[in-house]
Design a protein around this nucleic acid. Structure first.
Lengths: 115, 115
DNA sequence: CTGTATCCTTATTGATACTG
DNA sequence: CAGTATCAATAAGGATACAG
């Protein structure tokens, strides 16, 4: 049979892709990771750097990223709390690269009305 | 300066990635592309194959995919309307591959509590 | 069959204020 | 400072009905 339904192929491939998408999609996840790539940040520093994000949303996003091992909370001796981008976040590099590459190519195509 | 803020790096990289994400993220876009990879389909066929999608949402998704050149509407002589996956959709192959790969690796890590 | 329109319910987000 | 709680606004999604 050549007419694959979604239930066949999707059940294998889509969940994996969706796991990945869930983690990096959305307005803030990538921005946070990129911002933290520039150095550890405190909560309020992050909020300022990501102009526009509310404390509530930032808090939730950070929890997600923490749960997925991409970011850690570090507590200094003086009590300061820092958010740190984990080395594991580098594993997203090739994913991101492909996304950026395709996004740029695609935008170019749209601009040139090749589509 | 080593503390890059989001405004610097994000302004270059994030929009490109978001363009890509916008197009493939969401519950249905990928499923539709995968389903159409199994052969051209009519609107109702698609709706059935994608069990759970409403006509309204399917209609919107297809329009998005069409606008981005990933899918076309083909009208047969007898009036039948088919949705066709364009060759251009193959350009997403490497993006998808990276997403799926990372998603699988990640789930494995979570399962093993390596994170 | 191929959609669109409408209505309704639910999820996301933002703004603001507030606690330890 | 580091968040949480609450409420209001908006967006997104499903169900159903209906038009061409």
């Amino acid at each position: 049979m050549e007419t694959a339904t979604c239930t066949e192929k999707c059940s294998q491939v889509v969940p994996a892709a969706e796991d990945a998408l869930y983690i990096i999609a959305g307005k803030w996840k990538m921005r946070i990771l990129i911002t933290l790539a520039g150095g550890d940040k405190r909560f309020n520093e992050l909020q300022r750097a990501l102009s526009g994000i509310s404390a509530r949303v930032l808090s939730n996003e950070l929890k997600d990223l923490e749960l997925n091992g991409l970011v850690s909370r570090k507590i200094l001796d003086n009590g300061t709390i820092l958010y740190v981008r984990n080395a594991y976040a580098d594993s997203l590099r090739s994913v991101m690269h492909e996304l950026v590459q395709w996004g740029m190519d695609h935008k170019q195509k749209i601009r040139n009305r090749e589509i």
